[in-house]
Amino acid sequence: MGKTDSAEFTAFAEFERSGWARRGDTYDSGFGAMTAGLHGRLLDAAGVGRGSSVLEVGCGSGRLAATALDRGAVVTATDAVPEMVEVAARALPGTRVLQAALPGLPPELLAGSYDAAVGAFVINHVPDPAGAVAELARAVRPGGLVALSCWDTLDRNRAQGIFFDAVRAVGALPPADLPGTSPFAPYASPDAFATLLREAGLTAVTVHQVTWTHRVTPDQWWQDVLSGTVLTSSLIEGQTPAIIAKIRAEYDHLTAEFREGTQAALPVAALLAVGTRVA
């Protein structure tokens, strides 16, 4: 399931890294704030508390690591993008923050010493999901936990789904240089996500659907997504100005369903997967 050749791995990884390099200073306050709605539940699932040793992959701007530190955990944070590492290091003084791709973590992080390895939505962006989960299974000690989140379907995750629906409604085509799909796409269901973890050697695997509400003005959310995502923003910004205007008009129409005064109460949905290393 989900096999991708090395050329596709390389192209997808480069697309992601170059895109996130441009988002280092704009991700956190908008889209990053939305993703934080899952952080507490992800750390609960990973058993993170005082004294826990935690490896975070795809740390982005450092929000999840900061929450783990507030719980008294000892955190090593990593990200593949140098610009994100710089942002996270500023936000997490005194914390070890490393540039490291997933998969491809340095051997020192794969010695089976962590109580938990966690990643908030990073699995959606890696070029080799099976290789990534296998590395995280190696990073934790026997009995340690791996906890990962991915986005749920767009019909449930309306905070993002409305953008893709708006593009589809106006008949806009993806730009020619846009990757066709994420390598993680075949795993983006509860059963397939669970299988991914089991095939990495993890046991007692559970996958839960998690929902929350993100409240923001529609104007702000439009800007947050364009400045805080890679695939979605590229899909829209690669259109002509006339088509972008049509997409925006359709977006305004779709957000009306969720309006509460000046804000929109947007449903967000994710899958949260947890597995245990036994040996």
Rank of each mutant, 00 (worst) to 15 (best):
C150E: 03
C150W: 02
W151I: 06
W151R: 11
W151C: 11
W151L: 14
D152G: 15
D152W: 11
D152V: 04
D152K: 09
T153M: 11
T153Y: 04
L154M: 13
R156E: 14
R156W: 04
R156P: 00
N157K: 02
N157R: 07
N157E: 03
N157I: 02
R158F: 01
R158L: 14
R158H: 03
A159W: 04
A159S: 11
A159D: 00
A159Q: 00
Q160W: 04
Q160G: 11
Q160F: 13
G161I: 05
G161N: 05
G161C: 03
G161M: 06
I162N: 03
I162E: 06
I162C: 12
I162G: 02
I162Y: 00
I162Q: 01
F163N: 03
F163E: 05
F164D: 04
F164Q: 10
F164H: 12
F164V: 09
F164G: 02
D165C: 06
D165E: 15
A166Q: 09
A166Y: 07
A166K: 07
A166P: 05
A166V: 09
A166G: 06
V167G: 01
V167R: 09
R168C: 03
R168W: 01
R168L: 07
A169D: 09
A169H: 04
V170L: 10
V170D: 05
V170T: 10
G171E: 10
G171K: 08
G171L: 08
G171Y: 10
A172Q: 09
A172T: 11
A172V: 08
A172M: 10
L173Y: 00
L173K: 14
P174K: 13
P175Y: 11
P175F: 12
A176E: 14
A176R: 14
D177S: 12
L178R: 09
L178G: 04
P179W: 12
G180R: 14
G180I: 06
G180H: 12
T181E: 14
T181Q: 14
T181C: 08
T181H: 13
T181D: 11
S182I: 03
S182Q: 07
P183R: 00
F184Y: 14
A185V: 02
P186G: 03
P186M: 00
P186R: 00
P186N: 04
P186Q: 04
Y187F: 15
Y187H: 15
Y187A: 07
A188W: 01
A188M: 05
S189E: 12
P190M: 05
P190K: 09
P190A: 03
D191W: 03
A192L: 03
A192E: 13
A192N: 12
A192C: 07
F193Y: 15
F193M: 14
A194H: 08
A194R: 10
T195Q: 15
T195F: 09
T195L: 13
T195N: 13
L196P: 02
L196M: 04
L196S: 01
